[in-house]
Write a protein that binds this DNA or RNA. Structure first.
Lengths: 217, 217
DNA sequence: CGTCTTATTGAATTGTCTCAACATGCGTGG
DNA sequence: CCACGCATGTTGAGACAATTCAATAAGACG
């Protein structure tokens, strides 16, 4: 539902959906512990979500691309459980939850949508954890690239060539690897002609062989 | 809500809440892909949830103790995303969702409860992932023991001494470690007089020093 | 154009895994 | 109830993948 709003926001009651000015690179949408008020959908650009750590090094817990939502889990506890920050100039669609309920929108439909999003998030996290926990650096990064490709394809992009808008150390934090390892594996993939790499730009030359790398027992 | 039912099921409409005979050790409550029908709350004993893997080695994704729920994420997709299996003789409270909706129960309250459970699960998984991804074997196992202790305390237990009802390799799968490593670390903890270990029984001698191990930068 | 951040590459270190042997516990059937 | 057999747990030695530290290179941004 919210995903559709992100594409075509014309049929949403005024005052609920907020189209804000483009979000600057590095700008924070919400912080861990902030009182929950809205769910955000990415319209263009990309975001990272993270858990701030006392010891300086933030833990990246997710990346968010057009058509995907952020902050949903906050509805349960009334506060945002993570911080969301733009990786590049981006646009978003903000849906104020309390105002949605006020307006004649069916609360039940709204809740169903939230349940669906959360349920998918739980499932995704479980499979993600499974891959992260037992796989090698090459497998993790291969799976990560394929996952990004797939998610971008859903939104009409080719999925063959795209931009790694996050830093190497963000990728590393997310995948549980040192940023140097990310660097090394990417160059290894390039030498094996699995990908083509030009700074932030990636081109998947052979998704099939990449999938083989990931599935190796 | 469901947690309360797990404790005192007297005020639930008949036919919705099912008290089943005790579940045997090793018995499966539901399997990945099964059509969703019920949420389960643990009354006594313990369970593991897992993602079956084609390559034999199942991935453990969670453990469930009295007062905790299982299968909630299935409501979103209509199928159970994981398999739940009893670690010991246990009792459960099964709540049939479709019948709950049929009965006069407010669908909205029910949905709110589900949202709360899912939101907490998302948050928990995020913090769990954070610890698993960057921490050493000692930190993972220390955090795991402390987490178990804390969850048992919530339900009135002392939390100082409890039973590790899962096998070493279940722990290992869950924590991303070889079962041998789990074994080694536990004996190391024992030698350091952080815990006392008698087969499945653990006694946390110094939760504070254990927390220090976990927090070491 | 210079400064600061991010990325790449190298060399050495180390934690965890793998393989293997052995010990212990548990359930089953005699 | 004991004895057997299989599953589970412990411990050791060696291998290796990823980390850390360090130095250089390349971009980003004002």
């Amino acid at each position: 539902m919210l995903l559709e709003y992100a594409e075509d926001d014309s049929n949403l009651p005024e005052g609920i959906l907020l189209r804000r000015r483009p979000v600057a690179r590095g700008e924070t949408l919400f912080r861990t512990g902030d009182p929950f008020h809205s769910v955000f959908a990415v319209k263009s650009g990309s975001f990272k979500t993270l858990l701030p750590s006392q010891s300086g090094q933030d833990q990246i817990i997710g990346f968010h691309f057009p058509g995907e939502t952020m902050g949903t889990a906050g509805v349960a506890e009334g506060i945002y459980p993570c911080t969301a920050r733009a990786l590049e100039v981006s646009t978003i669609c903000e849906v104020r939850m309390e105002r949605l309920e006020e307006s004649g929108q069916s609360a039940e439909m709204l809740q169903r949508a939230i349940i669906e999003m959360l349920g998918k998030e739980v499932s995704f996290n479980n499979t993600l954890m499974t891959s992260l926990i037992r796989q090698s650096a090459e497998q993790r990064i291969g799976a990560f690239l394929l996952n990004l490709s797939q998610r971008l394809q859903v939104r009409g992009q080719t999925g063959e060539e795209f931009s790694l808008s996050m830093s190497r150390s963000d990728m590393g934090s997310y995948l549980g690897l040192a940023s140097e390892t990310v660097s090394r594996v990417l160059t290894r993939f390039q030498k094996a002609e699995l990908i083509e790499l030009d700074k932030k730009r990636v081109h998947l030359l052979s998704p099939e062989r990449l999938a083989d790398v990931v599935d190796e027992v």
